[in-house]
């Protein structure tokens, strides 16, 4: 059976197609203004890439903030359940997930069947999310993809104390004007994200083995900072960014929902 998962996030739209428990392919595009159109586009593109006709897809589950705007999906499920399912599919030993997406971050703990036990989400604030990093990258004139490796070269990470993205940006600007190195500032930014998220994760009772998912998991600096704060390592799968879409596609075939 071939199934598909479509995850419409605030910044990117992701699609995953699975057949009999195997990932056939995944795709990521920018969501842009129209969530429904982005869902359609990412779905069409992945089908074209895999040379599959739409009729052969037996079931489609949508997830993410735009989940309810995907009218061609058979069902919509929250990204919390999908991330748990995706992590469980990739590694059934995983009991905790930290997902850092474009506009929110989540801490999820799960049982031995991959079912959600607890979850917490960041509240009404973009600090500690992908968007926060984007704003900082612009202020520092650094390509976001270089953020991770640059921060590992820091000798004395700066302290970013603001809880607010906008105020943190002005803090960063004042650090730049003081002549602080980009590496140290970026490391400071990662530490501040890790502080915020680890507080939420500890409250949710997260334990190892744990996985980091979402687009921000691609940033090695954030991974290291979080590991230091939490006191244990995180598995980062190559599918980190499309984990929610994989979970949706896997759930579509599971008969659980």
């Amino acid at each position: 059976m071939i199934t598909a998962g479509i995850d419409i996030g605030s910044i990117t739209a992701k699609a995953a197609v699975m057949q009999d428990g195997k990932i056939l392919g995944t795709r990521v595009i920018f969501t842009g203004y129209n969530a429904e159109a982005a869902g359609r586009k990412v779905f069409d593109e992945i089908l074209e890439e895999l040379a599959i006709v739409p009729d052969s897809i037996k079931r489609i589950i949508s997830t993410g903030y735009g989940r309810n705007s995907i009218k061609f999906a058979d069902k919509s499920i929250t990204e919390i359940m999908c991330h748990a399912a995706g992590a469980f599919y990739l590694n059934p030993r995983i009991r905790s997930i930290i997902d850092i997406g474009g506009q929110d971050s989540k801490a999820i703990s799960m049982d031995e069947n991959g079912k959600v036990k607890h979850f917490a989400m960041n509240d009404k604030c973009a600090a500690g999310t992908g968007r926060f990093l984007e704003v900082m990258a612009r202020a520092l004139e650094v390509n976001l993809d270089e953020f991770g490796t640059m921060s590992l070269k820091a000798d004395r990470p700066s302290k970013i104390s603001s809880l607010c993205t906008v105020f943190a940006e002005s803090e960063v600007i004042s650090l730049i004007s003081k002549g602080e190195s980009r590496e140290n500032i970026i490391a400071g930014i990662h530490d501040s994200i890790a502080s915020r998220i680890s507080a939420m994760a500890i409250r949710t009772g997260l334990t190892a083995p744990a996985m980091l998912t979402g687009g921000v998991a691609k940033n090695i600096g954030v991974v290291k900072a979080l590991e230091k704060k939490m006191g244990f390592g995180f598995e980062v799968s190559p599918y980190a960014q499309v984990n929610g879409a994989i979970g949706a596609a896997w759930l579509a075939a599971s008969g659980r929902v």
């Binding site: 499920i77 929250t78 990204e79 919390i80 959600v116 989400m121 509240d123 009404k124 929902v257």
Partner: peptide, 27 residues
């Protein structure tokens, strides 16, 4: 737990709360 305010509607974020309720009901 949903974060909001009893009277000040500027403290209510619909899409965030909607997702939390949906995820909670799934549980």
């Amino acid at each position: 737990v949903i974060e909001a305010d009893m009277v000040d509607d500027r403290s209510f974020s619909e899409s965030q709360i909607s997702t939390r309720i949906d995820a909670f009901m799934e549980m």
